[in-house]
Amino acid sequence: MTDFLQLFFSGMATGSIYALAALGFTLLWQASGTINFAQGEFVMLPAFAMVGLIAAGAPLPLAFVLTVVLAIGVLGWAFKRGVVDPLFRHGMMPIVVATIGLSIALSNGVRAGYSAEAHPFAGMFPDRIFNIAGVTITLADCGTLAFALLLVLATQSFLARTVTGRAMQAVAQNTESATVLGINVPRMIFYTFAINAALACAAALLVTPVYLAKFDMGVSLGTKAFFAAVIGGFNNSRGALLGGVIVGVGENLAAAYVSPQYKDAVALALFMVVILFKPQGLLGRKEERKV
């Protein structure tokens, strides 16, 4: 039982990070039909921005704030204007391929322009260890989990409770009627991109102490976040947290109790089941077919 709890908690902390990136996935998809294959690189880039700023002498909080501002400009505004807007009306295929190209360019740009090495990154939580009922927990795990939970819940209540958030959701559900209602659609879509960029920065802040800042850190993170997003439901943002935690905990339990070589198979199996039998995701509502 102690073992189980140990694995469970550790998986929760990892999973909550997947959830942050997964949330961005679903937000972009709903607002603009973008499946962002560069989502992992969107976390990698802020990580390096922070590494660079800290190396230049900025304290962590300042580095983080500067990075968020920068990310909203580059990964939010410029990405939307430069890549998504021109391709939006051409359907899914060109956007998918453009983001694939973008992910190749970003990771290899960082590799060639900065470093191929992994860089350590001091987290915002001290490296202290607790022991509760035989389960060892680090302060960093607790902090990561709490911070990620807070962010996901805050994003969701922003979407559900505020006027702007509701307008954004209206745009995601039906662009035309949103326009009729007098909502500034392009601005709402931009807000979504901005939130995605900010969430990516937060994810970078939380994952980099463990993932290490490396040009290819986005590959595995992007894949896991993608699985989490689909399991939680690709066309709603409620399930992202659940999806992330399922993937994180699932791989730990599978590695311990099934087979370490097939540890990814559990999330994969669930992923397939969700797609085939409940494509709206575990927490999603059924969507009418658009013709």
Binding site: D3, D216, L253
Partner: peptide, 17 residues
Amino acid sequence: DISTDSGQIDFSAAVLK
């Protein structure tokens, strides 16, 4: 005899085993 993946992040299960 515990196999892990290249690029793996969470080693709690491997260490536990």
